[in-house]
């Protein structure tokens, strides 16, 4: 028997799939000697460029641009690293114990150790394993990423009701998606939402990691990345 036809995706999820950013490339500087400074310079530059993309992406989340500019800023300042980490994690789902920071920057444990990225590597891998176990799909990833942004628990929100409405609409989109596509597991929405504490914990470790690097002052960082780190 043919499998039952899947219901159409909710409007929000279809929209989030369309506005999902293109692949990003790290383009490590070939003139720099390999090692700690080069690896971190590459990652900081990549993060800075990806932040620009994330800010553009956020504006396409239905309802986000209707928030006040101050609330848009507060959500992004709280959640940017969770979004960066979730992007890395989703790109890494097809790999074995490797992190796909970018299409051209895939790091295994050995490379991570040699380039001083082991702490970050070890911090992010449990999240990859968690989503692998759930076999997270792209529709779920794009929705969860928007939920992470709306649910960033910033203490500086002006219009709490408006942010709540945004959370509710994205939560509903995830529930509808699971209702239509994963009828065999009625707890799947909950299982996905229950990954968010580990995402926050991982992002906090990553922020700490890059903040220490900023304090050491040996790695050049672009202005937007610095600005977001300082907002933390």
């Amino acid at each position: 028997l043919p499998p039952p036809a899947k219901k159409p995706l909710t409007k929000i999820v279809s929209h989030l799939l369309v506005v999902e950013p293109e692949k990003i490339y790290a383009m490590p500087d070939p003139t720099m000697p390999d090692g700690y400074i080069k690896a971190l310079t590459t990652l900081c530059d990549l993060a800075d460029r990806e932040l620009v993309v994330i800010i553009g992406w956020a504006k396409h989340i239905p309802g986000f641009s209707s928030l006040s500019l101050a609330d848009q800023m507060s959500l992004l300042q709280s959640a940017w690293m969770e979004i960066l980490v979730l992007n890395i994690v989703f790109r890494s789902l097809a790999c074995e114990e490797e992190l796909v920071y970018a299409e051209d920057y895939v790091v295994d444990e050995e490379h991570a150790r040699l380039s001083g990225l082991l702490d970050l590597h070890v911090a992010i891998l449990p999240l990859v394993r968690r989503y692998k176990k759930l076999s997270m799909e792209k529709e779920e990833f794009v929705t969860l990423k928007a939920i992470a942004l709306s649910n960033s628990d910033s203490t500086h929100i002006e219009n709490v009701e408006a942010v709540q409405r945004l959370q509710d609409s994205l939560h509903e989109a995830l529930q509808d998606l699971e209702g239509a596509h994963n009828t065999e597991d009625p707890r799947r929405t909950g299982k996905l939402l229950m990954t968010l504490p580990l995402l926050r914990q991982t992002a906090a470790k990553a922020v700490q990691h890059f903040y220490s690097i900023k304090v050491q002052g040996k790695v050049p960082m672009h202005k937007l990345f610095l600005e977001m780190l300082e907002a933390k």
Binding site: S65, L69, A70, L76, L166, M228
Partner: peptide
């Protein structure tokens, strides 16, 4: 806001808002 001027500027660069 003065401290976060790049984020502010990037958010202000307009694309039409997507309504719920």
């Amino acid at each position: 806001k003065e401290k976060h001027k790049i984020l502010h500027r990037l958010l202000q660069n307009s694309t039409s808002p997507v309504e719920l």
